[in-house]
Nucleic acid binder design. Structure first.
Lengths: 149, 149
DNA sequence: TTGCGTGCAAAGGTTTTGCATGGCA
DNA sequence: TGCCATGCAAAACCTTTGCACGCAA
């Protein structure tokens, strides 16, 4: 596996803070369900089924932390009550580009694009807002799903 | 006002069921905020400020009904807990609007902007993705919070 | 008059928070 | 040892639901 972090450090190791049994377990679950989306409830249940219980607050707090650090993507799905999280593959430099989420199939599409890059500048100069692009998710319908109709 | 319904019938008159004081008030509020989005809480508060109180359950139930009938659009905004509703004005039905959310103070800033509008087109032509702009939220730091430091 | 609409309060579900305890570094 | 992390329970929120009463048609 190729790492983008110097020194061979893995992406998930960028997670700051202590390394604990609970955090390892949560990351494992996320990685195993890489392409799908998981709610806090899902993660908690999966861990409990493995008799490796982790408190729900811990799951909430850690997923929030991972989202802030760009290790997982946090997003909402229309019609669903709970927030979803998705692990970002470590070989992709996810902090440097944008993401589009298909509202139909759930696919997370990585996008590198100069035009979108310029948006950050535009929003700063015209709207006085300092954009944190890595957190933004563009929602819509992907080509596959559109054509499939 | 030009109606898109044949025979001069207005859009909101498509709403089935009884015509009541409460329903008229709710529709009024929605129409006045046509370009923005409103939560159930927003609608309820606006009515209460006008000392024209309407029960919250009524707002929930009526907005849900209007959404089912296609008179308003129901959607969630990334990162927001509450569901949003937008009146579908026949003139503005296609106009997208965007939101910026300050990661510090939590303020949600409404933004209408041609440059950002072009983004929808760009993402469609270059990335084959049909953007649902109203759901997208740009995260960052607002000017007030930046200056306040 | 009939049946839908309304409002209150209670219930249900999700997420956050306070605080004492646990455990990593 | 000094913090950060954890887990429980409570609180805070948002939304739905049950039921008695009100009101449009």
């Amino acid at each position: 596996m190729i790492s983008i972090i110097k020194g061979g450090e893995k992406l998930e190791n960028r997670a700051s803070g202590y390394k604990t049994r609970q955090r390892d377990l949560i990351l494992d679950v996320l990685k195993k369900h890489g392409s799908g989306h998981l709610t806090v409830e899902d993660v908690t249940k999966l861990l409990n089924d493995n008799s490796t219980a982790v408190g729900k607050s811990t799951v909430y707090r850690y997923l929030e932390k991972l989202a802030e650090e760009g290790i997982v993507k946090k997003y909402t799905v229309d019609g669903e009550r709970s927030v979803c999280y998705q692990y970002l593959d470590s070989h992709k430099a996810c902090s440097n580009h944008y993401h589009m989420k298909c509202e139909k199939c759930g696919k997370l599409i990585h996008m590198e694009c100069e035009t979108v890059d310029k948006l950050t500048e535009h929003i700063f100069t015209h709207h006085n807002f300092r954009l944190n692009g890595s957190k933004c998710v563009f929602y819509g319908i992907c080509d596959d799903c559109y054509k499939g109709e």
